[in-house]
């Protein structure tokens, strides 16, 4: 039972950290893709969505190489922490973040695309700078899509298995998350213990969806987008 608690805690920890990283980054890339015109936009769009089209194991293997001491990311972590982050919970969070990133960016992009850019232009003309315009006009109007994106990213991070097991391993108490623990328990025939974590997964899933719906309701009535031509 104690190990169950630490497994769930580690899962939540990696998923929350992964979501906290993808939220601002995903918003920035979504904004770039929706509101800006630049060379290489198509290439960036493909690159951002690429993890979606790859087997997670492939992502895990690429990440393992990237955080290794031969790649610059690995060298950076060696100079900062004295070791690579491979087979630590940081690596699990990184894997979860990379895998959920395309889903987050795509949700945010759809949300931002639904905000009439003329409202942002109007806000600028009324004296709001770019940051204030984003916070007071764009974000409130993109609220639903942003919430959906955060939830999607979080549940994807929570369910991450393939990339995580390659780059972070399946070390009990250190990098073992709910999916990898269930995998271990099924392989070892410990089905009762596996079922316990299956139930925990269902409960967490329901809780995440309930929070999602509650946040959406809070946006209140009269929110409907203003009609209008061109």
């Amino acid at each position: 039972m104690n190990s169950d608690i630490s497994i769930v805690a580690l899962s939540l920890q990696t998923a929350i950290v992964a979501t906290a990283v993808t939220l601002p980054l995903g918003m920035f890339f979504a904004w770039l893709l929706v509101r800006k015109d630049f060379r290489g936009k198509f290439a960036l769009d493909v690159l951002v969505s690429l993890p979606l089209a790859l087997p997670p194991v492939v992502i895990g293997y690429v990440l393992l190489w990237a955080v290794g001491s031969n790649a610059w990311l690995g060298q950076l972590s060696v100079s900062l922490f004295g070791s690579t982050i491979a087979f630590t919970w940081f690596a699990a969070a990184l894997a979860a973040a990379v895998v959920s990133f395309p889903l987050v960016v795509r949700s945010f992009a759809a949300a931002l695309a639904g905000v009439d850019p003329r409202l942002e232009i109007a806000a600028r003309g009324l004296g709001a700078g770019p940051a204030r315009t984003f916070v007071t006009v764009t974000l409130p109007l993109a609220y639903r899509g942003v919430i959906a994106g955060v939830l999607l990213g979080f549940v994807r991070a929570l369910s991450e298995f393939g990339a995580t097991i390659v780059v972070a391993g399946n070390i009990p108490g250190r990098t073992q998350t709910i999916p990898s623990a269930i995998f271990t328990r099924i392989s070892t025939g410990d089905t009762d213990a596996a079922w316990r974590l299956v139930i925990v997964s269902v409960v967490i899933g329901i809780a995440a969806l309930a929070i999602h719906n509650w946040l959406l309701k809070r946006s209140g009535p009269g929110y409907a987008r203003q009609g209008g031509s061109n």
């Binding site: 003329r118 409202l119 232009i121 600028r124 003309g125 009324l126 109007l141 409907a224 209008g228």
Partner: peptide, 17 residues
């Protein structure tokens, strides 16, 4: 634009919904 203090009224208002 935010420093110009020029008020604009658009065709369909562009009110913040």
């Amino acid at each position: 634009p935010e420093k110009r203090r020029i008020g604009t009224v658009y065709q369909d208002g562009a009110l913040f919904p």
